[in-house]
Amino acid sequence: MNKTKFLSIFLPICLLPLLLAKLALHFEWFEGGTASQGEWMPEEVFVLPGLEAHEKVWRLAVIPANDCTERCQQGLHTVQQLFIGLGRKQVQVQPWLLSTEPADTILQQYPVFQQQPGANSSHAAVQNYIVIVDVQGLALLRYPLPNDEQLPADIARAIRSDLLKLMNYDRIRV
């Protein structure tokens, strides 16, 4: 095989993937940036101020708008089942109920949850959501509280997937 024949075959083979990639970007044939299933917070919100520095755990916060209604209780049940399903990774996660109302009766039904009265649950970006909070108290991802159209198992699956990814890439523990 001579040099010109080799180049006439080799160059199109090398350039074809680049051309296809350029066309895919130009015509938006794929959906980019969908590694997470939750919605990233639109702004920086610290929902758990004053966390103890020695506690290096992630938080799953259920944040109702007012008092804990049926939708909020579905969210609590979803997060409790998710927490139980984490198995040995439970030591790296704490479920929280961030409500301005005292919820002693609700917390008796869901014993894995903690409640902090001074938490920042009044921010509109986190109300009526289940939020993944990092070890420093910053809200990262949010998921809507389950309602009739959304299955709690689907929301739990999405939270679990994102939480495990975040825990695997966590460099604060190292």
Rank of each mutant, 00 (worst) to 15 (best):
N2C: 08
K3W: 09
K3M: 10
K3Q: 12
K5M: 08
F6V: 15
F6A: 15
L7D: 04
S8V: 07
S8I: 06
I9R: 13
F10W: 05
L11D: 05
P12M: 09
P17R: 07
L20N: 04
L20Q: 07
K22I: 15
L23H: 09
L25P: 00
L25V: 09
H26I: 02
H26G: 07
F30A: 03
E31D: 01
G33P: 05
A35W: 00
A35L: 10
A35K: 02
S36N: 09
G38D: 05
E39N: 11
E39A: 10
W40T: 14
M41W: 01
E44Y: 09
P49Y: 05
L51P: 06
E52M: 07
A53F: 02
K56Y: 03
V57W: 09
V57D: 12
V57M: 10
R59Y: 11
R59D: 07
L60H: 03
I63N: 08
P64L: 08
P64C: 12
N66L: 12
C68D: 10
C68R: 13
E70P: 00
E70W: 06
E70G: 14
C72I: 11
Q73F: 00
V79P: 03
Q81L: 08
I84H: 06
Q90G: 08
Q92F: 15
P95M: 04
L97Y: 08
A103H: 13
Q109T: 13
Y110G: 05
P111K: 00
P111T: 02
V112C: 01
V112E: 10
F113Q: 09
Q114G: 11
Q115G: 11
P117H: 12
G118D: 15
A119Y: 06
S122A: 14
H123N: 15
A124I: 12
Y129Q: 15
Y129I: 02
Y129C: 08
I130S: 04
D134M: 04
Q136Y: 01
G137R: 08
L138Y: 00
L140A: 01
R142F: 03
L145E: 07
E149I: 10
Q150F: 05
L151Q: 13
D154P: 03
I155W: 09
A158M: 04
I159E: 06
L163P: 05
N168Y: 04
N168G: 10
R173F: 07
R173H: 11
V174Q: 12
